[in-house]
Every structure is written in C-alpha cells, then in structure tokens.
Amino acid sequence: MTPFQPDRPDATPCATAQAGFSAYLDSAMSGVEMVAIHAHLASCTACAEEFSLWRDVQRSLGELGPAAMPARLQPQLRSAIAAERTRETYLPLHRRLLHQLQETVAPAALRLAGGFAVAITIVAALGWLIAAPIAVEANDDRLANLLPAHYLYSQVPPQPIRAAQDEPILVEALINEQGRVYDYNILTGPRNQQVQLQVADNLLASVFKPASLFGVPVRGHVVLTYTGVSVRG
C-alpha cells in the first residue's frame, strides 16, 4: 500500500484515497471528497478490498462494546466517596482550613478566653490585697499606737502666778521620756521675767506621763493654761 503524501504532486490516486479512508468512515470530509473516494473505490478493486478491511475493523470495534464492570465496583466507589465526604475533601482548601479552624481552634479559643479572664480576675484581686498602698489617714494614731503626753500631778502644790493683770497664760511644755519638762514656751500672756520664773517653778514640780509610740516612751509636748492673778494692795 502506498502511503498517503498529499503534499507530493506524485501521490497516486490509490494513496490519496487510502489516506482518506479514516475520515470517509466517519463522513468527516466534504461532499466533493466523499464523491471522489466513492468513485475511486468503484473503479479500484484493491482499494475497495482495503476499504472493506477498514470497515470490518470498525465493525469489530463497534461490536466489542464496553468492558463489563465488576459488580462490586459501584458499592466500592460509593464507599470511597463517603470516606472522602467525611473528610470534606470536596471543599476548596481555604474553606476546608477555615472549617477545621472553626472545629478545633474556636472551642479552644473560648476555653482560653475564659481561663484568661479568670486569671486576670485572680491577679487583680491578689494585687489589690497585696500590692495596693494603704492610704495614710489623719486618724492613724491608734494604728501606730501613738499616745500623747498628759499631766499627772505636781510634787508640790501648784502656786498661782501673779501677774500685772488678770489674763490666761498659755504655755507649751516640752516633755522628755521620763515625763519631766525640759523646756517650755509661753504662747500667749505676759512674758516678763517674774512670770517666767513662776511658770518654771510650776513646771519643774509637775510630773507628766510621757508620750509613747508602740508602748515606747518618746518626747512630746503638752499645752497648759495658767490663770494669771493680779494682786493689788
């Protein structure tokens, strides 16, 4: 059989016809070409026999039919697809990842958020109990157990203070740890030497309970009022 070489001008009519057998079998050529091949087959016995073989091959293939599928294959395929469906492999990758995120991370995130909130509450409570500074208040004397000094008695009867006129004398006495006056200061009233000597005499004989901090005697001060008495006569 001469091979078909359409580009070559010396191609024989048989080769041209045989090259078109495949398309002729499928009627996949123009009407003119089909008529030409039909005419050639009518006039050329060799090509007619060759075409007959081609047609037999086609008929045989047609009779071959589809290969019989094993009976178990369809249930097997359904089972395989069911397994894939469980794994959600039909979803696009981003949706599958998102879904897995929702399935796994979201519940964990809820638990984490809850745990975090509880932890914050506990830390804040502990901080408030331990670390927060206690505000200093004016009435913290009792807390510090700070007790002021106060007058107890006089070792000699107190003498009235004679002054030029009747007026009160306000004295600030500074008390040491032994409850004795170690200094004084006249805040109001006459401040002459006579008055100061009388005040000093009175203070020297006076006994005080010293001020104390947490039970320990410390220095303190006491404000005393004397009545100035004017003596005329």
């Binding site: 294959l73 395929l77 395989a80 697809i81 894939e84 469906r85 039909y90 979803l91």
Partner: peptide
C-alpha cells in the same frame, strides 16, 4: 477497578 476509583476520588476532591 482501582484506577476507576482513583478517578472518582479525584473528581470528588477537585470538583470545586
């Protein structure tokens, strides 16, 4: 049969 199963699994996985 095995290749047919692979084809259907591939169809399922790539249908999106």
């Amino acid at each position: 049969a095995d290749v047919t199963q692979e084809v259907f699994v591939k169809v399922f996985r790539n249908i999106s």
